[in-house]
Design a protein around this nucleic acid. Structure first.
Length: 476
RNA sequence: CGGGGCGUAGCGCAGUCCGGUUAGCGCGCCUGCUUUGGGAGCAGGAGGUCCUGAGUUCAAAUCUCAGCGCCCCGACCA
């Protein structure tokens, strides 16, 4: 028998690895730190891509593709950027059996190669804005990796936009932040806090970095998406100017933003349980599996025919599967589909046929519901929506129950270690005070809220004046 | 880069300390029969550069030396 899934209580991080294996999402590749995304895992990525891509297009973006390789000198043009990324770059020094004149960096992110192209594309304010996204792989030579959460190579989308004004760039940055927030909440059923990063957590080369932060079941934070206002930094580095309406030359304003296969890790750690993966219906590649049950071979044919008849025409509405495999018994199938996170199981045996019903089993609650066969598809679609909503509400309740307002450093120090969670605390804005959480508790300021009501208070570290609370947590 | 662990069948492991028949076990896989409403049972079967290299020895999965690789926990990061 396959390995049992370690419980979350026993060993959270082993549980995570076990769920990835049990659901057959991915495995370690022959290359250190890299993973093979298996068909079941990749199908989830395709769901994520599909919905996000629509959202990007609905907000005026188009897709394009830029090279994997970046001349080393490009990376060095923006001072902060190279400083931030140099330590984690993979560099190609040879090609075609010869040493290259100039080494090529395997992109850790594509700002530099893209802005070198934008330089040629932009002359006038009439060429702006440029609203481009690309779906790509990137490589970051991280010290320590974890399947989906941090791998040497990962898949992502990166948006790179160019604008004529600072206001427009800021508007774009916030617009995408909102797309990410909506995607997290409406599709991933993952409630997120959003806000701006402190200087120490900012993207290398950005003016401002906005982010969404989700709480995992071990109460740690996971950065699920970032949107950067790059100001004129990259335009300056690549000399990208345009003539404005008054005929004056100006540097172009830029944004960049991305989410990655890490979202699959977020999905796992937000909803899954000790039986395996739990997927929100909107992102589940297979929404429902019908398991027909029979006793004898003669019944098998009859049950399969009934199953096919019952589901005829469903293809147009939902993706589902009839598990007609004869080599496994129903119990095995029930377990397998639960491990894989299929939202809804439809059981149909001779007894159900007789009663003109089927039994629906919800993955989120385990609840079994006998329902009539009439209008089954509509019933299922409604149930899937209910489950989607239920998962969100459940995750939000968990997050809120583990989010606290604290005002004393001793209290923060104690609670962040023991139960853990998110902590709203006052902070004076000093990097020294910020560094103290980090050094003493390995906790960081996840974000500074942008839409919360302001509140006067005293910095939890130094007692200095604070105009608002910030979110502190341990993170992935 | 520090700390820990591991490398023997597709997966998980025993055997290694103390060298010695034909290298085992569980799961999975193949064949057949019986089964099928919560991880089926029996019978038969296939499957191995014991991580690599060198050495010691009559004899190495086991001892010695060197190397390689991976995983887990920390520091760095999406």
């Amino acid at each position: 028998m396959a390995k049992e899934i370690t419980t979350r209580a026993a060993d959270y991080s082993q549980w995570y690895l076990d769920v990835v294996a049990a659901a057959d999402l991915a495995e370690h590749a022959a290359v250190k730190g890299c993973m093979v995304i298996k068909p079941t895992g990749y199908a989830i990525w395709e769901m994520i891509q599909g919905h996000l891509d629509k959202m990007f297009k609905a907000t005026g973006h188009v897709n394009a593709y830029f090279p994997l390789f970046i001349p080393e000198s490009f990376m060095k043009k923006e001072a902060e950027h190279v400083e931030g990324f140099a330590p984690e770059c993979a560099v190609v020094t040879h090609g075609g059996g010869k040493k290259l004149d100039e080494p090529l960096v395997v992109r850790p992110t594509s700002e530099t190669i893209i802005w070198s192209a934008y330089k040629n594309w932009i002359q006038s304010y009439r060429d702006l804005p440029i609203l481009i996204n690309q779906w790509a792989n990137v490589v970051r030579w991280e010290m320590r990796t974890r399947l989906f959460l941090r791998t040497t190579e990962f898949l992502w989308q990166e948006g790179h936009t160019a604008h004529a004004t600072a206001e427009e760039a800021e508007e774009e940055t916030l617009k995408i932040l909102d797309v990410y927030r909506r995607f997290a909440e409406e599709y991933m059923a993952a409630p997120v806090f959003y806000g701006v990063k402190t200087e120490s957590q900012r993207f290398a080369g950005a003016l401002r970095t906005y982010c969404i932060e989700a709480m995992m079941q071990d109460r740690k934070a996971l950065q699920a998406g970032t949107s950067h206002n790059l100001g004129q930094n990259f335009a300056r580095a690549f000399d990208v100017t345009f003539q404005n309406e008054q005929g004056k030359l100006e540097l172009v304003y830029a944004t960049s933003w991305g989410v990655s296969t890490r979202l699959i890790g977020a999905l796992i750690m937000t909803h899954s349980d000790d039986k395996g993966l739990v997927l929100p219906p909107r992102l589940a590649p297979i929404k429902a599996v019908l398991v027909p049950i029979w006793k004898e071979d003669s019944e098998r044919e009859m049950m399969l025919a009934k199953a096919r008849a019952l589901t005829s025409g469903w293809e147009e509405s939902i993706s589902f599967k009839i598990d007609d495999r004869d080599q496994y018994r129903p119990g095995y199938k029930f377990n397998e589909w639960e491990k894989k996170g299929v939202p809804l199981r439809i059981e149909m045996g001779p007894k159900d046929v007789e009663a003109n019903q089927v039994v629906l089993v919800r993955r989120d609650t385990g609840e079994k519901i006998a329902v009539p066969q009439e209008n089954l598809l509509a019933r299922i679609e409604a149930l899937l929506e209910e489950m989607q909503h239920n998962l969100f509400v459940r995750a939000r309740a968990f997050r809120d129950a583990n989010t606290f307002h604290v005002d004393r450093y001793a209290e923060l120090a104690e609670q962040i270690e023991k139960p853990g969670g998110f902590f709203w605390v006052h902070w004076c804005g000093s990097p020294d005070c910020e560094a103290r959480f980090q050094e003493e508790h390995k906790a960081t300021i996840r974000l500074v809220p942008i839409d919360e009501e302001k509140e006067e208070g005293a910095c939890i570290v130094c007692g200095g004046r604070s105009g608002q609370r910030v979110l502190v947590a341990k993170s992935y």
